[in-house]
């Protein structure tokens, strides 16, 4: 009886110690995919849904890095089934709530995806519903598991910084080459601005792939969900994720605009930054009203 009690206590103690360790984030999880709601309640504005997509440079050699290299707002109008992707260069100089002014990617360092979302809401006037943040390993893992994404290249892309080595034509990019593509900037004439635009093109390529698979088999949405959940920690209920996937699969890539906000290069002190041009306000207004670009 005493031996049994000791055994039971030992078992409970083992479980109590082990289970939190199993759930603890490790080096690779820091670079996986996370997602959540920006506001406590999901309330689409007149049938429009906006998702903040963040690419950070966390990786297994540098798991705690939290600089946002990719910042996009994807919008969808559920009534017309059209949408748009609005891209923000990472060096955009903005006012960060509670932290003065700085580069927009610093908002992620100061306050995580929530602060970045609120910063963008303040700039654009758009109510953002969800955020999704992707690190290097999570990005590569998801793209590989989905079988790659097809992108058309009018010109070859060779970038020493990212390691991209892609010939002209329509290419199927696997996990590694997709990451190289979305990171490439040194070989681009417009540098980081061009990189932002390419990242938007990649998102549209992903959408085109989803829609193509769903056209053959609508249950493909469930496979995409399973792959995402394998690499992700989601604070979004599975039902909402399913609904978002179903909506996304009904949008044609031709009906999604890809726009990078107009900016001009300047300096803030000694730091090289870009400032938002005044004509960006018209883009924000149109996007806010219609979720289309």
């Amino acid at each position: 009886m005493i031996k049994r009690s000791i055994g039971l206590v030992a078992l409970v103690a083992t479980v109590a110690v082990t289970v939190p360790l199993i759930g603890a984030p490790d080096a690779t999880q820091a670079s996986s995919v996370t997602a959540g709601r920006v506001h406590a309640q999901f309330q689409p504005t007149d049938g429009k849904i906006f998702v903040l997509v963040i690419g950070n440079d966390a990786r297994s050699g540098n798991p705690n890095s939290s600089r946002a290299d990719a910042i996009h707002i994807a919008g969808i109008d559920t009534k017309s089934m059209r949408g748009g992707i609005l891209n923000f260069p990472r060096d955009t100089y903005v006012s960060i709530p509670g932290h003065g002014s700085g580069r927009i990617n610093e908002a992620l360092t100061y306050g995580g995806p929530q602060l970045l979302a609120r910063t963008l809401e303040k700039i654009t006037g758009i109510r953002i519903d969800y955020w999704v943040m992707v690190g290097f390993e999570g990005f590569q893992g998801i793209v590989s598991a989905l079988g790659g994404v097809r992108i058309h290249f009018n010109e070859p892309l060779f970038d020493t910084g990212s390691g991209a080595h892609i010939r002209a034509g329509t290419r199927r990019l696997g996990g590694k080459s997709s990451l190289a593509f979305v990171r490439a900037r040194k070989s681009l004439p417009s540098g980081d601005i061009g990189r932002s635009t390419n990242q938007g093109r990649f998102l549209i390529g992903l959408l085109r792939k989803l829609r193509g698979e769903v056209h053959t088999n609508p249950a493909s949405v469930l496979r995409w969900m399973a792959v995402t959940r394998r690499f992700a920690r989601l604070d979004i209920p599975a039902d909402e994720l399913f609904r978002l996937g179903v909506l996304a699969s009904q949008v044609s890539a031709r009906d999604v605009g890809n726009v990078t906000i107009p900016v001009r290069i300047g300096f803030a002190g000694a730091a090289s930054v870009v400032f938002i041009e005044p004509r960006a306000q018209d883009i924000f207004k149109r996007f806010r009203k219609t979720a289309r670009l």
């Binding site: 088999n217 609508p218 249950a219 949405v221 469930l222 969900m225 399973a226 599975a238 039902d239 399913f242």
Partner: peptide
């Protein structure tokens, strides 16, 4: 009809 039922929990499905 081709019906696919989600393997995790069987609470979601899709049909063609």
């Amino acid at each position: 009809a081709r019906i696919g039922v989600d393997v995790s929990g069987a609470t979601r499905a899709a049909a063609k």
